[in-house]
Design a binder for these strands. Structure first.
Lengths: 338, 338
DNA sequence: TTTAGCACTCACGTAACGAGAGTGCTAAAA
DNA sequence: TTTTAGCACTCTCGTTACGTGAGTGCTAAA
């Protein structure tokens, strides 16, 4: 569809626009790149590219800017081999070295490093908790009538919850309840347990065992998790970007909605191995029409354990950002395998 | 210094400016309030108020706007009795009812409700963890070489940490270690324990007891807390306010720095019973020169347990915001005492 | 097929201008 | 002595007009 020369011009235009944030004109291209063509020829090529939907004009007598489709072309044909800056790696290592055992700290640090070096919004989130595997349940009496439930999962973070017990339970009862729960549920994912609980509740009625009733009740309450963590860093730098002088409010609103951001990360990252890129309107949400998202997943024990990425303007330094996200994901995966 | 009439005019001007966000002129005052004075007289009074530093003029032929000192006067003489809106209370109750046992959820919910109803930035933070009292320490083996340490504090939230053990410890050893730690440290605040640990470490050397050495080591690692939670809600509405069309970036930067926000909350709230108000330049930080802060503390078991408040533009509806913060603090205090 | 030339378009900065809001000051009125 | 009417003055803001510069599309020549 596009001959090689046309592609090169498109590439040059996208690159120029990313660098300058100004509509790029034919003359500029001939000055900056050595195509050995006159502005007039470049103009013809540009007209073609516009016809195909790779470029657009803000107004008649301005230069061209890439459309989302133009960026997509650019990203797809981008050589993925660019070097990561040493400073980035260094800052990654120094910041995360101390936190090898603390997943939350690790993720927050990663999001922050990512944002500081890219100047975009840094994101990191562990996978939806429903898919994590329960390792052990521990119960204590706590301040009289309460029970502290601690859920140890395979993925490092511990969830904890304090729930109200009807009456004070003896340590013995508590131990028997937790023994029962461990025997029954450990090794399953949270989602599976939620399912099992429903079955259990009908069986339990037949059994009429007060201990089990109590146990199931405790477990059910403990599994009503908060929505899950997500780390978003670099807000202030991000909204300071010239690209959204207006619309700040909208965009800030979308980003502040952590619930939504989580879902986005999960959807985009799911299944794909390397970093995946979502450009502007490829994003299903209208608030993010001018924003691009780069996400990669990180792993633990060979399984996908969460996502990490950046959000920037569509006019974003993709090649740099992609490598950074890739590197970050690799680092976290490494850190998690000790 | 100011006679009653002058005070009333000042009040009227501050109020008008809060409502309209436009410099208020003499004519406007005579039309809106019934002082039965001519614009000329009001102008004279305004000139006096400006001389005393309560008002300022953006430029020669504009109306007056309050200075920080003007706002301060307004706030100090504000009747604190205005009614809270029912909608606010209602939303508070419905949102927090479910979270009575979960301090973090409670605080986040409070910050969010506060921000949604005030349209300013909602803040909530538990007191610096150093001053919370340790209730119990529990230890488990976790994934081979690690130990999960769970700290139960008096104030509801549990801190947890996973630390690396040199070698795998038997359940018996682990129990003996935790028994020792509980006997030694429970009932003290985290700060006190940190102090005790230093002493312990010298004694421990003399004793040469490998168990105690291990215990002290574990405890020390577990007490190296993350900086502490703070909940900040309503960012997007907040930066959408017309007051900071420029300077958004700066302000966003200051707000994003949670560490700094925490310190601010702690300093301002400390010691004072009701809501305290910090207006514009009264704030030590230059990024917050145009911002006002209203903070109150909430209590648990009679002791101050954290702060809650809002940040808004200096041109803020103080009376409404103060009552809201007050109400929020009362609600949380109540929720925490069951 | 490429290029030079040229007329045309559009954003942007500047200047001029009038309207409007508000002031300070002075002198008269209360 | 205090308040008020009157008035000249100041400053912002929106509008209009205009010139400049960057960039285009088209045509015709190379």
């Amino acid at each position: 569809m596009l001959n090689e020369r046309t592609e090169k011009v498109l590439f040059a235009i996208v690159e120029s626009f990313i660098n300058t944030n100004e509509p790029v004109g034919s003359r500029f291209i001939t000055k900056t790149y050595s195509f050995n063509l006159s502005p007039a020829t470049i103009r013809n090529i540009m007209a073609d590219l516009e016809e195909f939907g790779f470029l657009a004009q803000p107004h008649t007598s301005a230069g061209r800017i890439p459309t989302d489709r133009g960026y997509r072309f650019y990203v797809d044909f981008l050589s993925r081999s660019s070097e990561v800056e040493d400073a980035f790696i260094e800052s990654f290592i120094t910041r995360l070295e101390a936190k090898r055992e603390d997943l939350n700290g690790l993720l927050e640090g990663a999001a922050r490093t990512l944002s500081e070096h890219s100047r975009y919004l840094g994101l990191a989130a562990p996978m939806k908790s429903g898919r994590t595997t329960l390792n052990r349940i521990e119960l204590f009496n706590y301040r009289g009538n309460y029970i502290a439930v601690v859920l140890l999962t395979d993925e490092g973070p511990i969830k904890h919850k304090i729930i109200r017990a009807g009456q004070k339970l003896t340590p013995g009862t508590l131990r028997r309840i937790s023994d029962y729960l461990n025997q029954e549920f450990s090794g399953y994912t949270v989602d599976e347990i939620r399912l099992k609980l429903v079955k259990e509740m009908s069986r339990e009625k037949a059994l009429c065992d007060i201990l089990i009733t109590k146990a199931v009740e405790i477990c059910r309450e403990a599994l009503s998790f908060p929505p899950g963590e997500i780390y978003v860093c670099g807000f202030s730098d991000f909204i300071g970007l010239p690209d959204f002088s207006s619309r700040i409010r909208e965009i800030a609103g979308a980003i502040e909605d952590k619930h939504f951001m989580l879902k986005l990360l999960e959807q985009v990252g799911a299944g794909i191995e390397g970093p995946s890129v979502l450009i502007g309107s490829e994003n299903p949400v209208k608030e993010m029409k001018d924003l691009s998202l780069i996400v990669s997943t990180y792993k633990q024990d060979g399984k996908v354990a969460g996502s990490i990425g950046v959000i920037g303007p569509t006019r974003m330094d993709y090649s740099r950002a992609i490598v950074m996200v890739q590197t970050a994901a690799r680092f976290i995966t490494e850190a998690l395998s000790q």
